[in-house]
Amino acid sequence: MPDRDPVERPFALVVALVALAAWVGGDFFMHEVLSEIAILSIFAMSLSLLVGQVGMVSMGHAAFFATGAYATAALTIHLQWQVLPALLAATLIAALLAALTGLFAIRTRGIFFIMITLAIGQMVHAYLFKARAFGADDGMGGIPRMDLAWIGLDSNEPEVFSASVLIIAAIVWFLLRILVRSPYGAMLLAIHHNEHRLRALGGFVAHFKLLAFVIAGTIAGLAGSLTAQHTAFVSPDLGFWTVSGEVLIMVIVGGMGSLTGAIAGAAVLTLLRHTLSDSSFWQNLGLDSGLASYWQFMMGVFFIVMVVFATDGIHGRLRRLWQSIKG
């Protein structure tokens, strides 16, 4: 589609500069948070492709995230694979699972798509919760990080790992941006707006949707592999439906249909969670530090405010601001 979004590029530039500044000036804790944000950004961007571009609201996207994480854990711990090939294989396994489940999921629409993806997510969670080979409800620990010795770096150092995942997040942004601006991206947008008419014109609607589902699942698997490396630990909770819900909230807060928005949403929600659950934050405000344990409640309030006053998210707000400045 001809570019109708004047905000996306400057917005992305600002986000990139903020990330760079945070990385340069960040301490140990900041680098941990940056890694977390970068990984969740990749995860959120993958869902943003489905929700924002195609209009497929998935409530089971964590299934592919967990699959990528567990595949990385199993390959590196059980089979002693190197991390980089394990990362590639884990991403591929997530893609395979997405293709398999997508065949069924894409036949449905709206609430039924939400239900079927929810079921897929819960099935993956239920399997991981019981599977002895993968540590069942204990999960698996001791997952190594990617080996960067070949360029003289140690990815166990927080600033090296955060830089790596930030770069990967940037690459994912670029690739997805190419995709949404391509003829294929226009087809996805057309499905979003009027699937019936696109089919009547002769568009391969089912193929296009399945491909989008697989691409989104693949990238979610990549994010999962990175999170396993980051925390060195995987648990069945990674595939739980609340994780799918949280990443959906990130996409909505950031602004549906914007990749940069997904990154911003991931950043805002992660920072908010860290801040609100920190008792010193409440003490500094002169309030009872016990409020920190109510952080999920506060997040709920934030989310309600967002939905009531800014349904189009951060990106949508910026776009309106731009339009009001321009005319």
């Binding site: 589609m1 001809p2 190419i178 391509s182 991206g185 391969f204 193929h207 296009f208």
Partner: peptide, 11 residues
Amino acid sequence: GIGHVAWRALA
């Protein structure tokens, strides 16, 4: 029939 072209800008 270029609906599958995902690597080239529409422009």
